[in-house]
Simulated scan of single mutants.
Amino acid sequence: MIRNPWTPMLLGLAVEVIAFVTLLFLPETLPGGYTNASILPTPSTSGSSQAITSTSAAIPSGHHSPSPAQRSLEFLGRAHSSLAFLVSDSCILLIVSAFIVHMLFLNRNVMLQYISTQYAVSIAQATVLISIRSGLVFLLCIIILPVISLSVRGRLGAKRADLVLSQVSAALLALGFLGVGLAPNLPVLVTGLLTNALGWGLFPFLRSLSTGLVEPHHVARLNSCIGVFDTAGLMVGSPLLAALFTKGIEVGGVWFGLPFLVCAAVVTVLGLILARVRV
């Protein structure tokens, strides 16, 4: 980046292309025995029942289309039926609602500006520091977390293990954000970044925990709800962090790292909520 800003951008684009090509080699995950024939009428259906079905399916003469109010009520009824599983268990609702703060922690732009401004380093040098955290997160996801998860699951069971690992991850994430927000120099900042990276398994563990708490036919709806909360968090989180960064610069002093102090407080509250979850 110091020599030529186009080099990292083109390298990043090449890595993205490799990722998309990899998708072509993913195997099909639908059950092999599934066919459209499974929804056809069975041969044992009697003629009388077929006649009844045909009659019931016919649209009666003089039939009127539903009014807008009726369509609205019908839509609300379907929405309530689809989301009933979400509000039926307070644990599921608490876990899913936690994803609204997920995107709050993925904004690298504020982190780059904070490091560059606070410690008087270039954007290129700040990028290197953040890349150290990214490298640890990479190792965490492909090696460390799977090994720890398998070990803890063998002792506590799947749901209990996901809950405990979520609580530990929340504590590390909050401690890391606190260290980043209060770091007086670069060595302490790097320590905070590394501690923060160790907690990045929080949301994968929460997703796994919530999936284990719902019935299999609700998993798709659950992930759709998580996606909605993620998107809402992104819409709110990005401008919020930018505003906090601006306010931190105006106030100065210990409040210079205000965005990360707020993130630490948010994760602390999330950890306290997880402490009340029972599986």
Score class of each variant (00 low, 15 high):
residue 86 L to P: 00
residue 72 S to L: 13
residue 70 Q to G: 10
residue 74 E to S: 11
residue 50 Q to R: 13
residue 88 S to Q: 09
residue 56 S to T: 11
residue 82 S to A: 12
residue 64 H to Y: 14
residue 64 H to A: 02
residue 44 S to G: 08
residue 83 L to Y: 02
residue 68 P to M: 12
residue 46 S to C: 01
residue 65 S to L: 14
residue 45 T to A: 11
residue 60 P to Q: 05
residue 52 I to C: 14
residue 43 P to Q: 03
residue 63 H to W: 15
residue 88 S to L: 03
residue 74 E to R: 10
residue 52 I to L: 14
residue 90 S to W: 15
residue 77 G to H: 05
residue 69 A to I: 06
residue 62 G to F: 05
residue 85 F to W: 01
residue 54 S to Q: 09
residue 92 I to E: 06
residue 86 L to M: 13
residue 84 A to D: 12
residue 81 S to G: 14
residue 90 S to I: 03
residue 44 S to K: 07
residue 54 S to V: 00
residue 66 P to D: 04
residue 64 H to M: 04
residue 78 R to F: 11
residue 53 T to L: 15
residue 51 A to I: 01
residue 61 S to I: 07
residue 90 S to D: 08
residue 73 L to K: 12
residue 75 F to E: 08
residue 63 H to G: 06
residue 89 D to Y: 04
residue 43 P to D: 01
residue 44 S to I: 00
residue 84 A to N: 13
residue 55 T to D: 11
residue 88 S to F: 00
residue 76 L to E: 07
residue 68 P to Y: 01
residue 52 I to N: 12
residue 76 L to V: 05
residue 64 H to N: 02
residue 84 A to V: 08
residue 81 S to V: 05
residue 67 S to R: 05
residue 46 S to W: 07
residue 52 I to A: 15
residue 94 L to H: 04
residue 51 A to E: 13
residue 45 T to H: 10
residue 90 S to Y: 12
residue 45 T to E: 11
residue 45 T to I: 12
residue 79 A to F: 02
residue 51 A to K: 15
residue 87 V to W: 01
residue 51 A to S: 15
residue 86 L to Q: 01
residue 66 P to M: 02
residue 72 S to N: 10
residue 56 S to E: 12
residue 93 L to S: 08
residue 47 G to M: 12
residue 77 G to E: 04
residue 46 S to M: 02
residue 91 C to M: 14
residue 44 S to M: 07
residue 88 S to N: 02
residue 88 S to K: 05
residue 84 A to S: 14
residue 76 L to D: 00
residue 43 P to G: 06
residue 61 S to C: 11
residue 82 S to Q: 09
residue 83 L to P: 03
residue 93 L to C: 10
residue 77 G to C: 02
residue 73 L to P: 09
residue 51 A to P: 08
residue 77 G to L: 07
residue 90 S to R: 15
residue 48 S to K: 04
residue 92 I to F: 06
residue 90 S to G: 13
residue 61 S to R: 08
residue 48 S to Q: 10
residue 60 P to D: 03
residue 67 S to V: 08
residue 62 G to N: 00
residue 69 A to Y: 07
residue 71 R to L: 12
residue 56 S to I: 06
residue 80 H to F: 10
residue 86 L to F: 05
residue 47 G to Y: 11
residue 54 S to N: 10
residue 83 L to G: 03
residue 93 L to Y: 07
residue 75 F to S: 14
residue 61 S to A: 14
residue 52 I to E: 15
residue 52 I to R: 14
residue 61 S to P: 04
residue 87 V to T: 15
residue 56 S to L: 13
residue 76 L to K: 03
residue 58 A to E: 06
residue 78 R to S: 14
residue 73 L to I: 04
residue 63 H to N: 07
residue 53 T to M: 15
residue 72 S to R: 14
residue 72 S to K: 14
residue 49 S to G: 02
residue 77 G to T: 05
residue 76 L to S: 06
residue 87 V to G: 11
residue 90 S to V: 09
residue 44 S to Y: 05
residue 89 D to E: 02
residue 94 L to M: 08
residue 43 P to E: 03
residue 43 P to C: 05
residue 69 A to D: 11
residue 88 S to D: 10
residue 72 S to D: 09
residue 81 S to Y: 01
